[in-house]
Design a protein around this nucleic acid. Sequence first.
DNA 1: TCGCTGTGATGCCTCGGGAGTATCAGTTCC
DNA 2: GGAACTGATACTCCCGAGGCATCACAGCGA
Lengths: 305, 305
Amino acid sequence: MPREYQFPFELRHLVYFHEVARHLHFRKAAESLALAQPALSRQIAQLEKALGAPLFVRSRRRVDLTPAGRVLAERVEPLLRLLNRMPRDVRAVADGEVGHVRVAFTGLAMATVLPKILHAFHLRHPGIRLELTESPTSAQMVALQSGDLACGFFHPDAATVGLNTKLLLRERNGVLLPATHLLAKRAALKLLDLAMVPLVLFPRTHNPGFYDRILAAFAMVGITPRIAEEVWPRANAVGLIRAGLGATFMTPSEAQHLPPEIVFRRLRGPAPESRLVLGWRQSPNPEPALAAFLAVALASPRTRD
Amino acid sequence: MPREYQFPFELRHLVYFHEVARHLHFRKAAESLALAQPALSRQIAQLEKALGAPLFVRSRRRVDLTPAGRVLAERVEPLLRLLNRMPRDVRAVADGEVGHVRVAFTGLAMATVLPKILHAFHLRHPGIRLELTESPTSAQMVALQSGDLACGFFHPDAATVGLNTKLLLRERNGVLLPATHLLAKRAALKLLDLAMVPLVLFPRTHNPGFYDRILAAFAMVGITPRIAEEVWPRANAVGLIRAGLGATFMTPSEAQHLPPEIVFRRLRGPAPESRLVLGWRQSPNPEPALAAFLAVALASPRTRD
DNA sequence: TCGCTGTGATGCCTCGGGAGTATCAGTTCC
DNA sequence: GGAACTGATACTCCCGAGGCATCACAGCGA
């Protein structure tokens, strides 16, 4: 593969040219460049030779740009401005002042820790853009492994090899019912009460660990639940319950701000437990922007139940 | 005035960086740059030091960009493309392949030589943009002297010091009359016939020489014309004649495509003569685009009367 | 386990070329 | 016509980019 770019001049030539074009005066330009005038003259001559076109009209007493020189000046000006910003911008990325981080989350995270973290993070790092996507646990695993994702808030029931994780909270699930349901009259329920109630769950593939633990909890009390629908994101289950399709599990945090036709009931005795972890890829060279996000996310006070 | 730009790196560094970023392999990049690998390593190290941030992660067996490196790569890529085009574009301007020329003209030019010249010119030099403005002779003089104008088609009755001029055509003026006018019945007129006819001329300041020669022509036959209106551009005189305001002088070329209410009559004997010249500033370094325009304009076959 | 191969980094040397000083050559102005 | 400018040229010096040889280290295979 041959080299892609080759230039008959150097940055120096452009800077010198720009300075002469600004002053239209070799000596003054040389002085402002802290350079001897002959050196400047020679560099400009080199540039003209390299471009194959005269850039200045030297009439002993006056220097003027040629049309070619004017075109070059117009192009060089923005170029130098871009180059001028470059070191600062690169440094800013290296120092983690700007950048962007892809973050995935589940509904539980958004209902609990995530808003506080986002608030604190944007205060501390206004230059870092977050790319937030609600995504099921299993998809987060894949994306984290492949590097598509920098970090994720998910349920820790999947394989987390090669990942750092930190448990953020654990919450017992309660039950969401239509307010008109018979069971809605009770203040608290037991799993056994749900034996004949159609359940709205989520596709098993999206979080097999949690799914299986729900079934295990039922098995512990000797029943096999009837699963009516599977929906994702889980917040959509609310709509189905409202339509009278059955009941679903949800943590108290997620069950805030329910429509009046739906009620939340605690579970006594065995109950599925939701755990929320923050996970990110182990790396010897963490991206500065990710490091900044993790620092804030891990420092935020835990929301416990 | 201090220097405006200073860079801690050279173009070379960016090209080398771009090549390493492309290959993610120092040896291959060095080879493609026709460079020894140590030299490349050192230049990259210099760039990293200059920017104050590592750009590559070197893990013995694999080279990867850091986030800062990725940002730099994104910025360097378009920059190098711009730089790559620059020499060609500057050359094109210097060679007169592209550019732009400000050209002024009077109504007579547009009625005669200009359309042909423009057609031939755009065929020959599609890259050169012309900026065409109808402008009175006196204004063209000022603009040519100040450099605001590259060349102009005008009437040569003004001072043309410092200008090159070339006579393009001379035409005797005839008379434009309302078709209902008494004089319109004759096939040809004499100046003397116009003694009592109100005339539509143009502001004297716009072309004092021609204006005075019209008056001189009248003086030769012993009359002082009555000047009713002065209007510019002269083509607008047609509207005034049509409204019955009087008569005006015009060359046969300009008097094409008249509305039916207006007639053109030749003048016998003494008559004002319009001359059209092409003028441009004398310069030891003619703009290539202007030179190209002049070459076409001067080569075009003269329209004689 | 011990080379073998292939990676990028380091040390040392060479030489091209950028920069400085002195000077020239031509304008412009008094 | 000379004084005071301008930018270009001649010569020299020396910094640093680049080459060569080598090092240090990571995989890989026998």
